[in-house]
Design a protein around this nucleic acid. Structure first.
Lengths: 337, 337
DNA sequence: GTGAAAGCGCTAACAC
DNA sequence: GTGTTAGCGCTTTCAC
């Protein structure tokens, strides 16, 4: 297992290291015979170029950094999975950055620790909205950025239409005849993201369009977890009159809300209708009506945008919007009475 | 934003590059005054060492590769999250490898593409059982390996006691009085892992210890997904007499099984008791009795073992077993009749 | 089409 | 304590 370097390959193939480098990377200006010989010698010697040396010499890392706020969330896992598939397929490495606190945040977005720019050719940031100062830091680092889940001005972004997604959930409830609809919003995550306010806006607008007044007392904030949704719902159920329907900004919160209803002796959808958001893999097991988003696709698109930037294909800033879709199951029904 | 190198810092601080390198890395043999001066000059110049140059020169990457079979799974997300926290905290980068097929597998475990050894100082592999030939490949690469979820001979491993975990689930069901217990096993995932056979063994042994015969016709295989559990349960419900209780090897499968029961007009736990495995965050919303495992902790321990190896602290091979715990909720009850 | 040589920016002996 | 000097293993002009 002695280190086999490019030099040894060159020696054995009877050519220079430069030729080996060209041949192995498929560059032009190498005669077919030479290339074949080099390739077979390299294979025989089991030669593997050292990525670090290549990086240092070429100034490119063939690595993309991916910054996420929380990995053990269905949504994030899907996005990362989508990114990874595309990246790996194109021969890029993926460095994972978990952005859990302010320090990690500035490490990812700013330049603490060398910033992303020296350890990756570009960065994909999931669900984080850069502040203005952060945006100028990003611009300073000479690498491309792609945002997932946040429409960031001047930066390539891939998002879902949160406004329309939430509105479709609200319209569904309104169409069923609900007029007293509660909202379990998301927040405060580690950092504010744009999903919750947009979903809130879409929800409110749909109610408004239908001439239905939204009672601010009908809103609670969960933390995108089942427990958060559960507690939010308990609180909401304390109100009189209680809502006949609930829109929760995530399926996990919706499931927590369902639980709270059951514990209170209320039937879903008999007494309370519930709509979630995401369509997680197990949503069907509780018959949850929800707004589906294709998180894997979100990640895949982001990775493709990144690669286009890295290969110098793209030029102007792009904003890609992936559609959502209402999935009707059995957690919603017309209100009684 | 011109590249500021160690040389510029040295120049401005009036010392040699070697001294800058030492000072900034906190090595001994630097006078306090010199160190201070260097540090402040570096800060002023906004100097960030280039990791690739450092890697090439030092032969260490300060990166550990993490190979997982599937990221958008609750368990995997938790593990990765636990690993990341520790690694980042210790100043290591984390390269994520998704092992989805044979090619990816040999890329991660073998030496395709330079193997892990040149791009990382070590690798943590989650839920994959290396074959004998793979093990020798691992040994050839001069980097430490840590396995999570698989007790791999000669390699540091951190696991849960699957046998006992499954046995505790079975005992719970037996204690309640169940004698006709179905099994929804896991597999075939992308690759065979050791969890399913161990859980199966623990389950069978508990039945055996209680003098209860297990009817092989009572076993179905899901794929660790809600849908897989759902279909497995539907099939199981076709049998007469049908089981009065079910042990599913994951919570998602358990939830799918619950769904199948409900669709068949059966009450849980009235007609069928169900036990899962994992204790996912939302398990409480459906009152699922389950075997809890602390996946985040699993990852954190693995990362710590890895760092000890990298810093040269550890010597002999370690096997860490993290306990599981039965969480009784409302999906289990004594059988009727 | 191929080779020679100059780095990429840092670390690690080794001298002093 | 500090400086000097080799490299680390590649890529990339620039000649030929």
């Amino acid at each position: 297992m002695a280190r086999v370097t490019i030099e040894k390959v060159a020696e054995r193939a009877g050519v220079s290291v430069a030729t080996v480098s060209r041949a192995l990377r498929g560059l032009p200006n190498v005669s077919p015979k030479t290339r074949d010989r080099v390739v077979s010698v390299a294979a025989m010697l089991n030669y593997r170029p050292d990525p670090n040396a290549a990086r240092l010499a070429a100034g490119r890392t063939r690595t993309v950094a991916v910054g996420v706020v929380a990995i053990p969330i269905w949504y994030t896992g899907q996005v990362v999975s989508g990114i990874e598939a595309v990246l790996t397929n194109q021969g890029y490495d993926l460095t994972l950055l978990l952005i859990a606190d302010d320090f990690a945040r500035s490490r990812a977005l700013g330049d603490v620790g060398g910033g992303v720019s020296k350890r990756a050719d570009g960065a994909i940031i999931v669900d984080l909205v850069p502040t203005a100062p952060e945006r100028s830091l990003l611009a300073e680092q000479r690498v491309p950025w792609v945002m997932v889940g946040a429409d960031c001005p001047t930066i390539d972004s891939v998002v879902i239409d949160n406004v329309e997604g939430a509105a479709s959930a609200a319209r569904h409830l309104l169409d069923l005849g609900h007029r007293s609809i509660g909202l379990i919003a998301g927040g405060p995550a580690a950092f504010p993201s744009s999903g919750p306010p947009q979903r809130r806006a879409g929800f409110l607008r749909a109610l408004d369009n239908a001439g239905v007044r939204f009672d601010p007392a009908m809103e609670r904030v969960g933390d995108f977890s089942a427990l958060g949704g559960y507690e939010a719902m308990q609180s909401l159920l304390g109100r009189r009159p209680r809502p006949t329907a609930i829109f929760a900004m995530s399926d996990e919160m919706a499931m927590g809300a369902m639980r709270a209803c059951h514990e209170a002796g209320l039937d879903v959808p008999g007494d309370v209708s519930i709509v979630g958001f995401d369509d997680v893999d197990w949503a069907f097991t509780v018959g949850l009506t929800t707004v589906r988003q294709d998180a894997t696709e979100l990640g895949a698109i982001a990775a493709r945008l990144m690669i286009e930037r890295l290969e110098g294909i793209a030029c102007e800033r792009r904003l890609i919007t992936v559609p959502t879709q209402l999935v009707e199951r059995s957690s919603t029904a017309p209100p009684v009475g």
